[in-house]
Structure formats: C-alpha cells, structure tokens
Nucleic acid binder design. Structure first.
Lengths: 200, 200
DNA sequence: TGACTTTAGTGCCGATTTGCTACTAATTCG
DNA sequence: CGAATTAGTAGCAAATCGGCACTAAAGTCA
C-alpha cells in the first residue's frame, strides 16, 4: 500500500492516501490518473474506481466527499524521490484517518471482487509471462492459494491465453513456456446462482 | 425504472432520475434514502451505492459530480401523488441526460453483480415467501431463467432459508410451503478462479 | 364425480467440473 | 552422475449441473 506524508501538519496521522481535488472540468478518472502519476512517476497498470465516501461522521480531511480509486502496479519500483511517499506492507500499515481506513478496506474488497470480472491480473504482467507467474498474481490479488492443475484447466477452458514459442529458464528447475494474453472466445458463463458467497 | 419530471424546464429531456444535493453534513446514504422516500412515500427495500460519475463531457445537470444509488422496491405500488414521478418498463425508457443514462446502465450491472453478494432478493420479499416467489425475484434481478431443481439444491446447500409450517394456496395448483430467510452456516465458498466472466 | 389442468416439489441420470495425488519432464547444483 | 527444484500432465473420486420425468395437491369443468 502506497501512502503519502499527510499534507496537513496539524493532522494526528502522519500518513494518508495520496489525494487531490479535481481541477476545473477534469473527469474523475483523469484526476485519479494524475494523482497516481504524481506519486508513482508513471501510470499504474490498472486504475479503477472503488466508490464514493461521504459519511460526515468520519473525518473528511478537507473534503466533504471523497471518491476512491485503486491503482495497481507490478512491483514497488522506484518512486519519485521528490515526494514524501512510501510503500507499506499490509501488516504494517500506519494509522490513517478513519475515512482513509475505510477506503483502503473497500479497495481490497473491490480488487478481490473484480479480479475475475476484469483482466486486472494480466495488466500487472509483462506482455509475455509464465503460467506460474500468472497464478502468483491471482493468488496475491485474491489473498489465497490456488491449485495448479485446476487453475490451468480453467484457464485453458476460457481461451484467455495463447502460448508463444519461447521458454524462460528461471534459475533452477525446468524452464517454463511463455504465454501471452489473447482472449479468444466468450464462453456462456451463465451458471446457476451462488448463494454461498452471500454475506452481510 | 422510476423517473421524475425534470426540474429544469430548459432541459430537452423531460424525464430524469430523481436527484438532489446533499444538505449540510448529511451522509451520502442518508441523502439517497431521503430522495428515495421523497418519490416513493416510503423507504425502498434495498438501497446501495453504484458509483460516482464525474465525467465532464457528459451533461451533469447542475452538478459536477453525481453519486448514483439503486433502490429496489417490491412492486410499483402507489407513489406520492404530489410529485411528477412515474414508473417506466425497461423497454420503454424515455430519453434522459447522457449521465443519467450511464447511471441507469451501471445500476442494472451493479444489481446483477451484487445479487449473490448481498441478500437483495430477500429484501424484496415479505418475511415469509414461497420458493417459487424467491426464484422469480432472482430471475428478475439476474435477467435470465433459472433451473428449478438446481436453484433449490443450491439454496438448500447454503442453509439460507428455513421452512415454516404454513402453506399458501395461490389459486389453482398445489399449495406451496412458506419459507423464511434465516441464514445459518457460512459455507467455505472458496472455489477456483472464474476466468469465464472476464469481460472488458 | 372424474378427467384435465396447473403449480409445487423430488428423484434420478449422464455430463461436466473440481480438488487432489501422483506422476513425468527438464533444468541447475554439487 | 544423482539430488533438488520447478513446470506441466494424467487420472481419479467426489461434487455439481442441467435436464427430464415423475409424484403431489390443489382448482376447473364437463
């Protein structure tokens, strides 16, 4: 999780989500991209809206209404040195404003929900990748382990990737074939109802 | 879909989504509930945020930023006669502002996505209901037919409803047993990855 | 009254999907 | 060379799914 030093020196919490107001007629997505570029130095691999947060009981910073966006980047690469921003492991998140805490939690929930609606995982990978890398990204985004054989079977049935004729040898072990994201068909995908993930 | 006569007489589109600005420190959800109550005369059975819409290329009415909410009500009952609001069948929606059109489309998508994350369907039913009624609500919200036996099997496996000892005779045909929403366990629910509904 | 219709609910079967173990394949390390 | 390591697959048992067909209980109508 990328956080920035809070701009307001009176704030008790030193760290906060990077944020800014929209400028003029700027669209929300454009503002989110501008803010992300400002802290990353480059555009994120994915950028999606989470929701609007406007509960006045929580400290809104300066804003009455906040619209949260999640960005994803492949790794914690170099940041703009000029800014006071830093990556934090999930287990060591510092205290942030209540509203920012709420946005962060909603962000992780949104990612887990959208992983299989939108090709988030593929945007985090280079144009060609091994199936093990793809599976690792899915496991990271979903927060749980997946079974190798089932993962590959489902992937093959969905016609999402196609093999290249290149192989990559990553240190020890058998070299892995490189694949590329090339969605072909569109399976029907309409199954019955999933009562089992009904929560809240 | 419930629409209201556009407040702005200069607008080309006569109909629009019911809307209002937030008042003072009012939370977004409270404002949505207030607006819904205003047009319905009563609170909707469900009310969930869709997203924030702030693309300046679309005509925003008066607002720079709109936060959309979907409300669901069991049937198109009586409305407040004092307001210029009316129900429209989906196939006969009149022209609305571009942003409102976008919100409407996102609303249906959001409902379809959240039907099996949140007990939307049960909120649309009275405390006791037949399984056929429940299935009809699901079919309405999902926009597709479901298989009776599979529906009931999945429902039973999820421990979501419990039978009452009452039966209802609805005109002709065998009387149906009444059930009540009483979620018991929480199944693991962690399946593999669903590549097949990856779109966009 | 008794056949027919209508709706509710269940049994069962074949096809598919899933989770899992165990295997084979290809490479590096020592 | 053999052990270790990673990639990829075969195959199996259990669960799930969609569909058909059946039974059950009511009303309808001659």
């Amino acid at each position: 999780m990328l956080l920035a030093k809070s701009g307001d020196p009176r704030a008790r919490e030193r760290w906060a989500l990077p944020w800014d107001a929209t400028r003029g007629e700027e669209a929300l997505a454009d503002a989110a991209l501008r803010i992300a570029r400002g802290v990353l130095g480059t555009a994120p691999a994915a950028l999606e809206q989470i929701a609007a947060f406007g509960d006045s009981r929580r400290h809104p910073g300066d804003a009455e209404l906040s619209v949260g966006y999640v960005g994803l980047v492949p790794q914690d690469g170099q940041l703009r040195g000029t800014q006071d921003v830093a990556w934090f492991p999930l287990a060591e998140l510092p205290a942030v404003q209540p509203r920012h805490r709420e946005i962060i939690e909603a962000a992780f929930e949104a990612v887990r929900l959208r992983v299989d609606q939108s090709p988030l995982a593929f945007r985090l990978l280079p144009p060609t990748f091994t199936l093990s890398e793809l599976q690792q990204v899915y496991e990271l985004l979903l927060g749980r382990r997946l079974h190798k054989a089932s993962f590959r079977r489902a992937l093959q049935a969905a016609f999402l990737v196609e093999p290249t004729d290149e192989w990559r040898s990553e240190g020890r072990g058998r070299p892995a074939q490189l694949f590329r994201y090339a969605p072909r068909k569109r399976r029907d995908a309409r199954r019955g109802v999933r009562f089992d993930l009904l929560g809240g």
